[in-house]
Design a binder for these strands. Structure first.
Lengths: 230, 230
DNA sequence: ACAAAAGTGTTCTTTGTACACCCATGA
DNA sequence: TCATGGGTGTACAAAGAACACTTTTGT
């Protein structure tokens, strides 16, 4: 602490890209802003990092304040630092993402005034977003699409028990293309980390499908070498 | 500009991970610090972002001031925001990396006082670095290792004309494992983006190897679909 | 009985991997 | 002539891609 650092009036913030999968549609969480700038616009949940909290902690806190969601496994994906990205001053923002089960979450309840409300919105039809949030979305979504091929991130979006058809539908929603049913199932099952349950799907007016679980322990065993990758 | 943003005394900085390949050894660029804190320590070239420059611009400027190198194709890889990572206050830093040709560069000539000198240091034997720079190095190096399998980043480290053995040596240095000569060559040539030159290696006391060039145009044509990936 | 989705194999192509010897050159 | 790295091919295994019909169930 011997010498002083030069101080600039600059701020950093967090913006969160929270994906969910509901009724076969891929969605993200948006807030409707109740304050200027961009009052009444839709935006990614995001706000300013405090001086005494790490980025990861800030991401948790901010998401909670703006949406009511808590303790999601968020990961950083990119930092956006264009000089004029915020109309009120220099704000550098760190983008975080998470993939979650929509229905496992309580109702969306922002506590901060900035968020008038929080909603799930289909990614295929996003409105114009505040600030450079559309860029942030695009960058983050591209990253997730790439990661889908290497990491078991899809299971975070599904209920604990799911059918292979649901899983395939999710892959198709994220990758935005049709996949071959037989090849998809063969490949998924060949990994060995899906656990077949005795229980079957209920309440459908056609042949009930088998339910599966994602088995984290098996996954960790099988891919312990590759876990170095993130 | 209607309302004021809350202002915290926080700072962001850039740290650069510059890789080079010299005499068959993978190296990174370090500075020896001439100022507190961590005076006399080795560190990654890094300093504070000004208020009126983007992160990318700041990375270029800072690297130039601390090492004399200019206009490298640097890319952001991660942002480090632990509260106590800097002993003098809250400093969030954005990590950038680049891979370059060591010999294509002029002498290393820092202009900023902070860098007493800049040197190339083998990655296999790094000293303790200032701040959390060892963590930053590990994270960045891991990223590059992964990227090596998907992107033609190795060619940035080699002279314009190179032999297949040199290329293989570089892959082996980055991945830290031996590769099979025949399989390596077959695979590289099968991509179709290496251009065989008529010119051959000179000045060696054994059979002269063919020289190759990396053909960016062909690469772009072949992989235009996958270029969405970064 | 019919509508709707579940479930299932084979063939071919591509990619990866293991492995060892002769060749050309300069000293 | 010898030491040094340059250069080459084959066989097998694994993974990916194309492709269509029968089965189960609820209504």
């Amino acid at each position: 602490m011997e010498e002083k650092l030069p101080v600039f009036e600059s701020i950093f913030s967090i913006d969160c890209l929270i994906f969910g999968f509901e009724a076969g549609v891929l969605k993200i969480l948006l807030i409707e802003r109740g304050d200027e700038p961009f009052k009444d616009w839709f935006a990614l949940p995001g706000y300013i990092v405090k001086q005494d909290e790490s980025l990861d902690d800030a991401a948790d806190r901010i998401l909670y304040e703006l949406t009511g969601l808590r303790d999601l496994p968020m990961k950083q994906f990119h930092t956006f630092g264009e000089v004029n990205r915020h109309p009120q001053g220099r704000v550098i923002t760190v983008g975080y993402y998470a993939l979650i089960r929509v229905n496992s979450q309580k109702e969306l309840r922002p506590t901060a005034h900035l968020a008038r409300k929080a909603i799930w919105h289909p990614v295929s039809d996003l409105p114009k977003l505040a600030f450079d949030h559309t860029d942030i979305f695009n960058k983050g979504f591209a990253k997730i699409r790439r990661r889908l091929n290497h990491q078991p991130i899809a299971f975070d979006l599904l209920p604990e028990k799911f059918t292979l058809t649901q899983l395939q539908g999710l892959y198709e929603a994220i990758l935005d293309k049709k996949l071959d049913k037989r090849n998809f199932r063969k490949k998924m099952l060949s990994y060995g980390f899906l656990k077949e349950l005795v229980e079957k799907q209920k309440g459908v007016s056609y042949r009930a499908a088998k339910l599966y679980k994602f088995d984290k322990r098996k996954y960790a065993k099988i891919f312990q070498n590759e876990l170095t990758a993130e």
